[in-house]
Simulated assay, not measured.
Amino acid sequence: MAVRLDGQVVLVTGAGRGLGRAYALDLAKHGAKVVVNDFGGSVSGEGHDDTPAQQVVNEIKAAGGEAIADGGDVGSYEDCYKMIKLAVDTWGRLDAVVANAGILRDVTIHNMSEQDWDAVIRVHLKQCYNLAHHAWPIFRQQSYGRFVMATSTSGLIGNFGQANYGAAKAGMYGLMNVLKLEGEKYNINVNLIAPAAQTRMTANLMGRDPNDPERAVVMAPEHVAPAVTYLCSPQCEESGICIAASGGRYSRIAIVANKGVTYDPHEFKDADWFAANWSKITDLSDAYVPWSFRETREEHYAAKKAAQG
């Protein structure tokens, strides 16, 4: 089945450069009408420039697609409302949102200012609340929506000096777990992309020469874009999935649970008992991916398939 988004409208934030630009171009290539949002600031969030967003719009139009630029601030509740309203006012609908915009203020926790913490949380995690809150009524009304958030292994696994960024990115996993439940009844799928690519934000993080032409090819943002296009498409029928994507590799990252060690709750155990059972309590050989407190992911989708006949 071909992946197509003909007639659909997608909002992509941070789409003026790097990964967001690659997403916007690929979505347009697959038939989507794209709201290209970009505040146009520096990597650390200073400044404002409408040029990057408009340049991507020009590229999409030159290729025969439809797009419109938006220079709103994703950390602003009001600006996120305006960019979603722009999509609806322009094309009469909104089908998918890619919450991709981000900034970096990397510093170790003992040197991190409150401003550095708040700014990164605002742009990354509050962005997702802002966009979901404003998009949800539209998605519910049309009984369809795709919501994709750009997380990072910096939060899901960890990266030195990125406590603010990692906390925001890991927070998206928790948000996805709740929104997948709230959205399922209305055919709203919520998924994560954890990309790795050579962009201006990662130029100094890869540990290699940012001007290396080979690196620019193998870590190009265009390697990540197909995953995002699929997650935004009607062909994607699963929710609550985190996909890691980079040049040469796609994989899945998941929070899992195990069966653990059970005991009679009428008997109280002490720390010595806990320590003695540590290896069994932490053993992941029987791990599974939960869907909710009541079901595993496998049980949930099996029941859903059976109900659909």
Rank of each mutant, 00 (worst) to 15 (best):
L131P: 00
A135E: 07
G166R: 11
H133D: 09
S143E: 13
N164S: 15
R140T: 05
N164I: 03
Y129V: 01
D106M: 10
C128D: 12
I138P: 01
T108M: 08
M112K: 14
Y129E: 04
A168E: 06
M176W: 12
I121Y: 06
Q127P: 00
V88E: 12
K169A: 02
A163F: 06
L94S: 07
R105H: 01
I138Y: 13
N100A: 07
M112P: 09
L125M: 06
D116C: 06
L131Q: 12
A135C: 06
R105Y: 00
F147I: 02
L131E: 05
G171W: 03
Y173N: 15
A135Y: 06
F139H: 08
A101H: 07
W91H: 11
I121G: 10
A119S: 13
L175M: 15
W117Y: 12
N100C: 06
F160S: 08
N100M: 06
V97Y: 00
V148F: 03
G171E: 03
A135H: 07
S154D: 10
N111A: 05
G161S: 13
A87C: 08
W136Q: 15
F160G: 04
A168L: 08
L86I: 04
P137L: 05
I157N: 04
V120A: 13
W117C: 14
V98D: 03
M149W: 10
D106R: 15
G171V: 01
N164P: 04
A119F: 03
A135Q: 09
Y165V: 06
D89T: 15
D116Q: 14
K169T: 01
Y165S: 08
I103P: 00
N111Y: 00
S143T: 09
L125Y: 03
A168Y: 08
I157D: 02
H124M: 02
F139I: 02
H134A: 05
F147P: 00
M176P: 08
K169F: 00
L131R: 11
F139G: 06
S152P: 05
S113E: 09
L175G: 02
V107S: 15
V120W: 08
A96T: 09
G174H: 10
D118A: 12
I121H: 11
I109W: 14
Y173T: 11
H134L: 03
R122L: 04
G174S: 13
L125F: 04
A119K: 14
D95N: 11
W91L: 11
A132F: 09
Q141I: 02
V123F: 05
H110P: 10
Y129W: 09
T153K: 15
S143I: 03
V120F: 06
G166I: 01
D89A: 15
L156Q: 11
I121S: 07
A119I: 01
G155C: 06
D89C: 15
A135V: 02
L86E: 05
V97L: 05
